[in-house]
Design a protein around this nucleic acid. Structure first.
Lengths: 191, 191
DNA sequence: TGGCGACGATAACATATGTTACCGAATGTT
DNA sequence: AACATTCGGTAACATATGTTATCGTCGCCA
């Protein structure tokens, strides 16, 4: 639905701003849970300041699937869409300022604008981008070694490596934190 | 766009049937390339009989990312959407009967129906399902061991294991064909 | 019908990756 | 200042996985 947008889809901003009055601004500390795994997602979240991760607990081991930063929005999509228990926890990494928009208003926004072809096309575009994003992640696991995946991250999204604690990145790459550390030191030697 | 549908989204069929006259029916043998990696996708493909894989060549090693069967449709989505060189090859596995619908008609269909809210909602639903599909694949790589991924496949999509040659499945699971063979024999012992 | 190629199993060995444990630096809290 | 917590590096060892090679079966086709 309305995933990342401010920077990537600035055309969405006017639609979004119509609903600004219903958004609740919250300031929270680091490691604050915004949505707990198993609960039904009731809000769309927009990040003004800070960063957030989406992850889950697998047999006591914490896994991370995605990171979000300033001017990005997110929700636990499947849960939000289908009113099912969320597969993921959403949790701040740094102290953050976020806006919460209750689901009702998102639904209103979608309903109200379903006859606006410009808006509809935008939503389709955003949806296609989300699909491609996850597809690329998936293909990368088939195609690349963990070391290559780390280098891709370094090349295409260095802010993640700069801002995010290493153990979260390791699980995002599908490897142990020890192995990520080894990869980094191997790369350092190569240069 | 219009990905899998006949079985999963039967409501789409009437829309689709309007364009039946523009579809070209083709019968092809096994291992026939329907779209070559690097070329721009110009057709939407619907499978009447047989099965098809989507994959790519990585340093001389063939990788597979998805399988398609009867009553499913596909295209190299990103290439089709953006007129860019396809990242993937589309190739039959078995002798197959497919229908090809040139892109122009797909675009007409989309344009013609953009004011039909029922159709628009269907497309959004299909798009959301595609997003969730790839997300689940991606999450599975972070969460599961190759053995678990094989078992998931066995439990949820056994037809893939029955119909598809093992080396394609191995690359789809992100492992070597030798290792897949080991996994199978380990599972056989457990029982 | 004979040969050839595709397919799957398996063994032996090499390499990649996980696990556990320990250390030290940095930071926040009392 | 003392302390706990988080974080990242590294070593030693265990396990998972890849690579290469060999073999047997099967189906296709010249």
């Amino acid at each position: 639905m309305l995933f990342h947008f401010k920077d990537k889809f600035p055309q969405l901003t006017p639609y979004w701003d119509k609903y600004r009055e219903f958004q609740k601004r919250v300031e929270v500390g680091a490691k604050t849970v915004l949505l707990e795994e198993g609960k039904v997602s009731g809000h769309y979240i927009f990040i003004e300041k800070g960063c957030v991760r989406m992850g889950f607990n697998n047999n006591g081991i914490d896994k991370t699937v995605q990171f979000f930063f300033e001017n990005e929005g997110l929700t636990s999509f499947e849960s939000f869409l289908k009113n099912t228990p969320s597969l993921f926890t959403i949790e701040t990494i740094e102290p953050s300022v976020v806006y919460l928009l209750p689901k009702i208003h998102v639904n209103n926004l979608m309903a109200e604008l379903s006859h606006d072809p410009g808006f509809t096309n935008l939503i389709l575009e955003v949806s296609a981008e989300r699909q491609l994003h996850y597809m690329h992640e998936f293909v990368s696991f088939i195609r690349d070694t963990p070391e290559q995946r780390y280098q891709n991250l370094l090349n295409t999204r260095p802010h993640i490596i700069q801002r995010i604690p290493q153990h979260y990145i390791a699980s995002y790459l599908g490897i142990s934190r020890v192995h990520l550390s080894r990869i980094k030191s191997a790369l350092a030697k190569k240069k």
